[in-house]
């Protein structure tokens, strides 16, 4: 059987996700940084929901479970299925565009003063 890729930016499989959990990385912030899931160019827009679903459902992908239902299942017992911190920029932003936006903000601020 082939691998199921859960994070396309960083090329991470669902087996690697479960392996991280088995090694003791049991909160979403640690899982994210240990596996690399949600740290690529999409910043989780493609992979995070799949990851949370997998964490909630465990190995049984045929019947997705809610977070409270999954609390009793192994090997994911004790996982708090929640969102990691979301930070700016919301979409990738080119450095020259950021500089332009900054100049505009300064103009606006000084124009009003």
């Amino acid at each position: 059987m082939g691998k199921t890729i859960i994070c396309h930016c960083e090329d991470i499989s669902i087996e690697e996700l479960f392996s991280a959990v088995e090694q003791g990385y049991k909160d979403i912030e640690s899982i994210k940084r240990y596996t690399g899931i949600a740290t690529g160019t999409c910043q989780g827009k493609c992979c995070l929901i799949q990851t949370l679903r997998a964490l909630a459902s465990g190995d049984d992908r045929s019947s997705p479970k809610t977070a409270s239902e999954s609390a009793a299942s192994t090997p994911l017992k004790g996982i708090a299925v929640k969102m990691p911190t979301i930070r700016q920029p919301v979409i990738p932003a080119r450095i020259d565009r950021i500089i332009k936006a900054g100049e505009k903000a300064v103009k606006k601020a000084t124009g009003k003063a």
Binding site: T39, P89, P92, A93, I95, D96, I99, G102
Partner: peptide, 25 residues
């Protein structure tokens, strides 16, 4: 955002070709 403006400016000034690169986080 103020940090991002200052950082972007310093980075492009120091390494002009990086102006085309995108910040993701």
């Amino acid at each position: 955002p103020e940090f991002l403006f200052r950082y972007a400016e310093a980075l492009r000034k120091t390494f002009p070709a990086l102006g085309k690169v995108r910040i993701i986080r």
